[in-house]
Design a binder for these strands. Structure first.
Lengths: 145, 145
DNA sequence: GCTCGCTCACTTGTGTACCAGTGATCGGAT
DNA sequence: ATCCGATCACTGGTACACAAGTGAGCGAGC
């Protein structure tokens, strides 16, 4: 490789955003599962947190709120139902809708986990300064549509 | 909610790094699949790009290079084998190892896709200025361990 | 030369994540 | 009233992603 010009467009996987986003996600997931001690999975927590914020919603609506495909929501909700954290019922107004809301146990669980979630965010951002953390959040928001 | 103090620790899912990382990844995947026209999946491309860079490696070694679990590598390599892009053989030196390397077709394919991959990176970072893009890459690297 | 700790690839099981397609249902326009 | 485009939940299929455990094989030290 004696003719290798390093001013040329040399593709370095490690510098590509896609690769870095995957790695960053990886580390976040690790921190997440450690902190919640495998009590709940990330997507499931997102659902609980959102339901805690907005109350009762239909499944599709829920998916839109947390950016999850309706097929994915199905699975996540299914597991939360099995765990007894949420409750599902047909809407009296629209026979197509399935309204999801927290059970008492679900509400108690989210409220207990919210501080843990904040700690997870903190730990994930720990290698950065306060300022850098803010910047990262801003830049990520910008490229997320 | 009249007593809601907004200087309190109000948990906003949309501001959590974990959520943003997932969304950013989501957009990146969308751009990826559009640009490669579903010819190949992201993890598969990572493998091809890495093999193109380093030549022949064992499966575990490969996994370490691109941060993939050995169970995940198995599946990805399996699909690349089926597509005829890589080639797998036992190491003569160490009976445990399975050496993976590109086939001619694999090499031709990666070389064709490398410019596309750069375009994917560009498109993903398009909402940011040059400076911001650099910053994002730096910050992501920092929090990825 | 045998044991022991390690690595390797693999398996099983769970949990996202998305696409494409389906049938029931809704609501507005005719 | 009926039709029609849209929405809803769901299904089946593909592709990561990781934890935990397995058996074969390696190599250092005794």
């Amino acid at each position: 490789m004696s003719g290798d010009r390093n001013n040329e467009t040399r593709y370095l996987l490690e510098e590509q955003v896609g690769f870095l986003l995957r790695k960053a996600n990886q580390r976040h997931r690790l921190i997440f599962s450690t902190e919640v001690d495998n009590e709940i999975a990330p997507a499931q927590f997102s659902v609980l947190a959102k339901l805690h914020e907005v109350g009762a919603v239909s499944q599709n609506q829920l998916g839109r709120l947390i950016a999850l495909d309706s097929a994915t929501v199905k699975g996540v909700v299914e597991r939360l139902l099995a765990a007894g954290y949420v409750h599902r019922e047909r809407s009296p107004d629209d026979a197509r809708l399935r309204i999801i809301q927290l059970t008492d146990e679900g509400r108690i669980t989210v409220e207990r986990l919210l501080p843990v979630a904040e700690r997870i965010t903190e730990l994930t951002l720990a290698p950065l300064s306060e300022q850098e953390a803010k910047t990262l959040v801003r830049l990520l928001s910008t490229i997320s549509l």
